[in-house]
Design a protein around this nucleic acid. Structure first.
Lengths: 347, 347
DNA sequence: CTCGATCTAACAATCGTTTGAAAAACGTAT
DNA sequence: ATACGTTTTTCAAACGATTGTTAGATCGAG
């Protein structure tokens, strides 16, 4: 038995379909009495306009899509995702929009983009950029990229990952550390850090810049680079790898807090004292960073704002055709208790 | 300039719209050569079937809606929301479905339900139940309620809030506590605990049951009930209120971890030692519960599973018409370090 | 060369709305 | 009664696909 539709109501009320439509969307074009009658009958029969059919006609869905590079379960584990969502949610609520989460469909981002019935996309940290961009373009709806390398003509919201990373590295260097390990999030680039892209690339760039200011560079001896999974285990394993080497670093800089926390835990169980024996810096400022002992020195980014600003821009693009702007939000170093000057060097 | 559509492709390829449609959805009904030709042209012209129009025809959107009782920003702050999402995400990924977050639209859940182009709804902790249920019914798509008082004939997934609460209270009672304060999440019911509904009601019920087993009941003297906001501040204020009274409780049982954490912090700043001077129990087992000092004894629920099972059921309801089942998932008491026997009573 | 079987592809209806343009209804002034 | 300006209401054409049914092409066999 099919859902009750506009024709049924029109028939029952003895008016045309048009009249019923007007009763809902443009009551001023009908007499008050007719509107009331139609609405009453609709209420009685439990009718409401079909959202799909309405979208078909109006060309609007009232929904924006959040395009995710990975399956939902992996994304939501990301500790700053909720904050980002919060920012999006604020703007959505204000504009009366719904939010559709759009992970890859059967492994394909392309399929996901093509299938999503939305008025516009927010993309979060896309990797395979060029291909995806083409699909987005031909999909024909506006989109705003977040956390992707900015491209001319494509609206983009980013945070100053490079600047934050640079601050973090500078902080450590300024305290006198010269034996430093960088723990990068594993990317499949096998340590070829010049090929890093996106967030990863920006952070790496920041680290390198600070090193350069001190006349240093990654040399596999004093300044080392290791890749690991962005998990506690990844951090723990990396610590162990490093501690097997002859010369230990006096500071470890991790590209994510969760890695840094793994390092601290592993260091603790190895009997070391953080920061006296080993300084540790993270990135992201997740909740746990301030709760762990010692509290983690890290780089914070305005996740909520990022979502908010990106969504605001997208809404503008959907409603009118605003200009595709780039915007970069600040990051800042949060100094807590996991960093101090290195011990005097023992000969 | 209108989006390119099926007709354009048909024209260009010199075939009918039907053929183009088949090339995408049912290639076996066309010769291999034709399919290839159509697909190539579609590729060249950047065509893909419009998702809205497709939904219109097929009656399917490929999307399920998560109906939320509050605006997005408030919901995502809820620490177990991500886990719940994770469970939903797993099933969605597996079934090739997208997820639409559906908060109240301009303050109205009804409007939100009516407007959402989805194949089914998951509802999370709905309060105004009867009204919403009616709207959902007439919306004509299947739905599964999560964390709502179960109703005959409506598929529902719940966790054993009552059982968990009962265990928590029993635990405290069995250690000898007889001066106990219950901190309930404020609900507008002004302490009339018999009117609590949903999760709140179930937890309260559990506390009361355990008390009854010991021949006790809420009496405003030994066993007290206080309502507060489910925030750290709420917990802190409640502690202060309680400590102004002549007879202090030896144990505080909070309906949420975040309240319990507020209590612990306030107790610490008041110079008390938890648990020696005051035992504290929470509910939810959020991440912070295990990180705070002392680690919080609390009741854990399988949030991820809850999402997973609910979604699985919804998918079944959408695909065939399965039976509307009720299911209750277990909760369990996690004993950590915030509870111990009360001090010997001083006369 | 014709007939029938087997593939291919096309026709046309359908999904449930919205909306610009046109018709009908109505009241009022001439 | 007629003409005219407002309201009120209806017509019918989109919107962009899918799909059951049917017509036409192709091919081999008789």
């Amino acid at each position: 038995m099919p859902r009750i539709n506009i024709k049924d109501i029109a028939q029952k009320a003895g008016v045309s379909k048009t009249a019923v439509s007007f009763a809902f969307n443009n009551p001023s074009r009908l007499s008050e009495a007719t509107v009331q009658q139609i609405l009453t009958i609709a209420e009685e029969m439990g009718y409401s306009p079909d959202p799909v059919a309405r979208s078909m006609s109006t060309g609007r869905t009232g929904t924006i899509g959040l395009l995710l590079p990975q399956p939902l379960p992996e994304i939501v584990r990301n500790p700053f995702f909720p904050e980002f969502l919060e920012g999006i949610g604020e703007v959505c609520a204000h504009s009366g929009l719904s939010l559709m989460l759009v992970p890859p469909l059967k492994g394909s981002i392309r399929r996901a983009i093509i299938n999503a019935a939305v008025d516009g996309f927010l993309t979060l940290g896309l990797e395979e950029f060029k291909a995806t961009m083409v699909v987005l373009r031909q999909r024909g709806v506006p989109f705003v990229t977040v956390d992707s390398d900015p491209i001319e003509g494509v609206p983009a919201i980013n945070v100053d990952d490079a600047g934050g990373a640079c601050q973090a590295m500078r902080h450590v260097l300024s305290l006198g550390h010269r034996q430093i390990a960088i723990l990068a999030i594993r990317s499949g680039k096998q340590g070829h850090y010049r090929e890093y892209v996106g967030t990863l690339g920006a952070r790496m760039h920041g680290y390198l810049q600070a090193l350069e200011e001190y006349g240093l560079t990654i040399d596999r001896r004093a300044i080392r680079l290791l890749e690991c999974a962005s998990t506690e285990e990844g951090g723990m394993e990396s610590f162990q790898t490093l501690w097997k080497l002859s010369r230990h670093p006096t500071a470890i800089i991790a590209m994510s807090d969760i890695i840094a926390i793994g390092v601290i835990k592993a260091a603790n169980t190895a009997g070391l004292h953080v920061p006296q024996d080993l300084s540790v810096v993270g990135f992201d400022d997740i909740t746990m960073a301030s709760l762990i002992h010692p509290a983690l020195t890290t780089v914070a980014q305005p996740s909520r704002e990022k979502g908010e600003i990106a969504t605001r821009l997208l809404v503008k693009l959907i409603e009118a055709n605003a200009k595709p702007v780039h915007q970069m939000l600040p990051t800042r170093l949060i100094e807590r208790n996991s960093v101090c000057p290195p011990r005097r060097e023992e000969p």
